[in-house]
Structure formats: C-alpha cells, structure tokens
C-alpha cells in the first residue's frame, strides 16, 4: 500500500507564555514542530505499511526549514520525503496549498492513500487535505478515529469517522484521502537508528517548475482568501470577581450572581 502523508511544520504553541504572545510566536517562529495532528497521520501510514507492505512518502510544503518536520517523519519510519519550497508559493491560502500538494502527489504517482491531519494549529482551517481530495477527485474520509481494515488488492478501506453526533463506520474505494484525529493512535517516538538515518538523508526539494503549476494558481496571486492582518484577541475588560466565604455562603452569593446574569 503506497501512502503519501501530508506534514506541516507549525509554531510550537507550547512556547506561548506571558511574554510570548500569539503574534510574537507567529513572527519569530521559534522552535517549530510537526503539526500535532500530522503525527497521527504519520503513525497511521506506518501502521498500514507494516500491515500491508508498500511505501510511505512524507510531503511538506513550506520554508526550507520544513525539512526538519520531514526528518521527523523519516526518523519515525517514512521511506522517503519530499519538500516543496519556492518563494512563489508565499502568502497563499488553503486552496493554493492544496493545488501544490495535489500536483506533488500526482508527480509521486501510484498512491493508494493520502493521509493528513484534522487541521493545522497555526491556520486552523481544517481544509487543506480535504481540498487535496477534491482536486485529485478521489473520495475523502475526514476525522478518522479508527482504521477498521484495508484491502490494497481490492482497493478498499474501512474506517470509523468521528462526527459530533456519533461514530460512523464508512467504507471507501481507494485511492482516497483521509484526515486523522487524536483518537486514531499514539504516535511512536523516532528510534535511535531512525534518527541517524534521517540525519543523513537528503530530501529532494521541488519548486513551481517541477510541478507544472501556473503562477496565477499559487501563492499570493492565486489566493482567493487573503489574510489582511493578524492581531491579538481582544483583551477582556471584566476583572475577576472573587467570591469569599465558607462554602454555603459563597455558593449563595455566586448563585445569586449567576441568576442575575441570566445564564441559569
């Protein structure tokens, strides 16, 4: 089973603190990590490969330092990695990114499954992998919480999808795209040998020319959703009101206030 995993490098939100706010983190970047949901995608790909054979290719579009995220995928056990990086791809939107990823997947060719994360913690769109499916014109299985079984020969897969209203078991033809949620698995740590192998690996970089994309389809020129400005969330004016007293007394005071606020 040949699988392509979509891996995005994102700012490490664990670095957020009193002194490092969201804007600073976006600007300075700081230490960057593999998008947490993409780790579940990598793990799922490795498990499917272990069960059915085949090859796992990790793909990332981003700045040159995104190669680090791909090295993590290689260290975990991916067979190969491809970085897609080109200044012409700057300031795109989810669809320009999806166009680039879909073109890369076509160039890789011969795939049974593409796996991405539920969403990226920087832009929180939960869209890119789904748009890749639309562009490749293959079925899309979102919010996958469990792999029930795959049959690469018959070209089918069965998964459990997480919906707000419950868990849905779906079967689909392959090739397909799916997105992973946290429940899917527990991502493995890279092995020592894996880390050594990844450190030595050379990761090919593809640009616009390699993918045959038109300039007006990608980057700022192709983006139909434009991020104008990014600001910090509005500071809440309300100061906390501390309720003092012994439990019964405090409970009475608080309940009075909540009734007055009409939330009960």
């Amino acid at each position: 089973m040949n699988i392509v995993v979509l891996v995005k490098q994102v700012p490490d939100t664990a670095q957020l603190s009193k002194t490092v706010d969201g804007l600073k983190l976006m600007e300075e970047g700081g230490p960057r990590i593999v998008n947490p949901w993409d780790e579940y995608a990598i793990e799922a790909a490795l498990q499917l490969k272990e069960a059915h054979g085949g090859k796992v290719t990790a793909v990332s579009m981003g700045k040159p330092e995104s190669a680090e995220a791909l090295k993590t995928a290689l260290a975990m056990g991916a067979d190969q990695a491809i970085l897609i990086s080109d200044v012409a791809m700057k300031d795109g939107d989810s669809l320009t990114t999806a166009r680039i990823l879909a073109a890369a997947i076509k160039k890789i060719g011969d795939y049974d499954l593409v796996i991405g994360g539920r969403s990226a913690i920087d832009d929180n769109m939960a869209a890119t992998a789904i748009q890749v499916a639309a562009l490749l014109d293959v079925p899309q299985l979102s919010y996958v919480a469990e792999l029930k079984g795959a049959d690469p020969a018959a070209k089918t897969i069965t998964v459990v999808r997480l919906r707000e209203s419950g868990r849905e078991t779906v079967s689909s033809k392959l090739p397909a795209v799916m997105t992973a949620v946290k429940e899917l698995n527990e991502p493995r740590y890279p092995s020592f040998i894996g880390i050594r192998k990844a450190a030595k690996a050379t990761i090919p970089t593809w640009g616009v020319a390699d993918l045959g994309l038109e300039a007006d389809q990608i980057g700022a020129a192709g983006a139909q959703a434009k991020w104008q400005d990014v600001s910090l969330p509005p500071v809440r004016e309300a100061q906390v009101e501390m309720i003092e007293g012994e439990p019964e007394e405090a409970a009475k005071t608080l309940v009075d206030k909540l009734v007055a606020e009409k939330v009960i």
Partner: peptide, 21 residues
C-alpha cells in the same frame, strides 16, 4: 465537522476562497 469538510470540498471544486470557523 460536516460543514468544515463540505465547505472546503465545494470551495476547491469551484476554485473559490474559503474562510473557516
């Protein structure tokens, strides 16, 4: 969940801009 995936898929098919959530 359904709205997020449906909107993304349709926007890609139509080649239009998407803003989620």
């Amino acid at each position: 969940n359904a709205g997020l995936e449906l909107s993304a898929y349709v926007a890609a098919k139509l080649g239009t801009g998407l803003a989620a959530d």
